[in-house]
Design a protein around this nucleic acid. Sequence first.
DNA 1: CAAGCCGTTCAGCCGGCTTTCAGCACCCAT
DNA 2: ATGGGTGCTGAAAGCCGGCTGAACGGCTTG
Lengths: 225, 225
Amino acid sequence: MRVLVVEDEKGLAAGLKRGLEAEGFAVDVALDGTDGLWMAREQIYDAIVLDIMLPGVNGFKVCSTLREEGVWSPILMLTAKDGELDEAEALDSGADDYLVKPFSYVVLLARLRALMRRSASERPAVLEAGDLRLDPAGRRCWRGEEEVSLTAREFSLLEFLMRRKGEVSSKADILAHVWDYDFEGDPNIVEVYVKHLREKLDRPFNRNSVQTVRGSGYRLDDKGG
Amino acid sequence: MRVLVVEDEKGLAAGLKRGLEAEGFAVDVALDGTDGLWMAREQIYDAIVLDIMLPGVNGFKVCSTLREEGVWSPILMLTAKDGELDEAEALDSGADDYLVKPFSYVVLLARLRALMRRSASERPAVLEAGDLRLDPAGRRCWRGEEEVSLTAREFSLLEFLMRRKGEVSSKADILAHVWDYDFEGDPNIVEVYVKHLREKLDRPFNRNSVQTVRGSGYRLDDKGG
DNA sequence: CAAGCCGTTCAGCCGGCTTTCAGCACCCAT
DNA sequence: ATGGGTGCTGAAAGCCGGCTGAACGGCTTG
């Protein structure tokens, strides 16, 4: 259970780190928004505690940026004032919950646990679509009983599609999330990788799980084709 | 989107009901814990707003009982005092979030939406008109049980008409929204696509969902023809 | 150092979608 | 009845989106 704390008040940050570590969490601390953003991108956290008032990039911005980039770790925001607007804006920018300063440590802990419990049940360790299974942690993939080996890109693409199974993902969306958000190359690359997936997941099994929706994008069949 | 409000202060209950209904929710109200428990068992709600201080069974008890019985609708708890204990206990009894009274309506709404979004494993975003269904996210369309495949334009046109089902949409409106707003071509194209829709959605099923209103435009029948 | 794999780019092909157009049918007012 | 206006229809053409095979360079591995 790894937690990222993004907080510029050094005293508070240190306190949180000590407290959470005592509870058995692994804790990383970022002292400003820019650092926080980098760290959250680099590694998957089980939860992120995020102050709103930050030097560099503010908390709202950090939060919405992460969400856009496909980082779905549960985020608990810390708001200094108790204005209603902050609260609403926190949730709208993609936070899962917020806490008004000053807060008590017990409450923070309870909220954090609730968030992680919730996201653990929402995000099962293994993604499934019909008899297609994918284990993000172990980077493995199966069609039925048979394991299929995928390259890094193929895997990311499939993971992305599986998390949105049944929905159409546009090529732009895919590029933004599976490739770097500032990817400037040929969008054709998505087509190329879709072909790769089809050759590994569909053709050998006579299936059709990755569907083209002309003019819109691609869709992974709910039932794995 | 059906919401259950369990609240004994009649004024507040009525206010919530009115407000939420204005936002397009279907709202049921229970005035005590016992009723709330019954109603939550009877039907699946998209969210439950639950007061802690209730005659009969209190909110904590209602919440934990429901959870034990396998009711997983997101629960938003209303706590009267702002003691830490209440908050922690609320989350521990299985609530997904809580709100301290007095709260503002905007915040309640934001929280409620966040909860439902989070638990939206089922996509409520499906448009319906009789036995005609359309899933904008998945770009799929059904007449009854049978799936109908539509091209990009056909889909946009149908989506537009379904969002305004029962109302007449002028050809100019349709052109502006389904085609580019600066479309300069032949308006006849709308007629062409209406024909396509009819051939795919109506003719094979002996229906008449897309109706012509001579001199005004087209209307999609509320009940799908 | 060689071999292989992976990620990426590119150009050509193909099918079908979008759009246009001309002719016909129908409704309504004169 | 007759004509204009409005909508319907089938076919044809052009274009665009997606598919594919090949090739290249960089990186890792033996």
